[in-house]
Design a protein around this nucleic acid. Structure first.
Lengths: 231, 231
DNA sequence: ATACAAATGTGTATAGTTAACACAATGTTA
DNA sequence: TAACATTGTGTTAACTATACACATTTGTAT
């Protein structure tokens, strides 16, 4: 499409390229991890002078020949080395002044990754996992984006077998319960939790015991079919 | 911002304007109404030759100085004359070839309006309310967008006092039940429905009876506090 | 005026789900 | 071998959701 091309709107208005392509579109990924009984998010030091010293989500402009899901997938792959991940679009942020360099509309995705995954390689030394419970001011409107994604996970955690993406392949029911507790920020009754999770028929008993615990070891399970929508 | 301006991405890559502003962004509104015990959607005849004869959602390009919510609000106001409406962002659609004239990414909103509202004036004679139950092929990916919005409403209808936006100010419990049935596509038990809706404490009894019914009239209610997020 | 048609308004019993709660068994460490 | 930490398990009570019927009110037709 050239600079003189025309877009027809539903109203048949004719609008020149120059007028209407002045908005850039980016994708921001809220990449969640789980470690030491805490939910974490992967952030990078902002390289904008306006936000110097602040952390920001991982994002990039969407390329002209790339769809939104592909862009989020690319960002995740570039930053973490992971390519078999859960990614879901959450919301699009388009406030006029959200980006200091110009009009940038950003589509937010969230992702759930296993921090201990052997394939995980942070590709940049200004990339760090931050505890959600201990977060300073973020660049742009990234706190807003993060909150929206967290809200979405909380809605989904009891509905869909998603959060297994945050755990290693083999896990105990205690680990799983602690994860639920971290996400929902509640304390759960152990017996009721085990009953409820078993009713969902998401887990396979591996007939193995967890190793290296200083107490009676629990059984290990894996999830039957993890949700990783092909993006 | 001029054609030579630079956007810094999180990676500090430098990307020229020409390369990265070749994507247009639009908003599409799925405007739901309710009439004759059926859910309806407001559509307009597509004016693209590629979709000649097909109906499409109401949409327009986002203007450079307009945020997304404002764009959806403007589209609704332009098309219906209504300006006190419920609007909610649902999802962003960015497939490469969704628009035949070029790369257009569209943010979908849904809206709930009272078809019988005195202020409602369709501003275009190719605008029509279509029964959801009786819909032909739509232009673009608009069937996809519609489905996503319908899904969203169904999730929310029992959680939030939203659907009152579809009804006139005064309504009977029968009308309300019929609306729920239309949205959820189920049959509900009258006694249980009334019990449950009353428990939610959303309604005020107006101490009036519905007029002009050929049978025992029901009481009229209005909603206590309707949800119309300021957009 | 009377009978009929259509819809309102109301309560209870049953089934299913969620929440609260305690103790014996297993493995580790000193 | 005793103390510690954590696993694994079942029952009861509270709450929620579902199924279900009859007398009352209004309008209409005769």
């Amino acid at each position: 499409m050239s600079d003189t091309s025309i877009i027809r709107t539903a109203e048949s208005e004719r609008i020149s390229h120059i007028d209407y392509f002045n908005i850039a579109i980016s994708v921001d990924c809220v990449i969640f991890g789980y470690e030491e009984k805490e939910l974490k998010v992967l952030l990078i030091k902002s390289d904008l002078k306006e936000f110097s010293g602040l952390w920001s989500l991982l994002g990039d402009l969407v390329r002209p020949q790339e769809d939104l899901d592909a862009a989020s997938y690319r960002i995740l792959k570039e930053r973490t080395g992971l390519d078999n991940v859960y990614l879901e679009q959450v919301h699009t942020f388009g406030a006029l002044n959200r980006h200091p360099s110009g009009r940038v509309i950003s589509v937010a995705y969230y992702s759930l990754v296993d921090i201990s995954h052997h394939q995980l390689r942070l590709t940049h030394n200004e990339l760090h996992w931050h505890k959600l419970s201990d977060l300073n001011e973020l660049a742009f409107d990234h706190q807003l984006i993060l909150n929206k994604c967290l809200e979405r996970i909380r809605e989904q955690v009891t509905e869909k077998p998603l959060v297994f993406n945050l755990l290693p392949e083999k896990f105990s029911l205690r680990q799983l319960q602690e994860l639920y507790q971290a996400i929902l920020d509640v304390k759960l009754d152990r017996r009721n939790f085990r009953k409820k999770i078993m009713l969902k028929d998401w887990l396979t008993d591996l007939n193995e015991m967890e190793p290296d615990v200083p107490h009676r070891p629990g059984k290990l399970y894996k999830v039957k079919k993890i949700l990783k929508p092909r993006i």
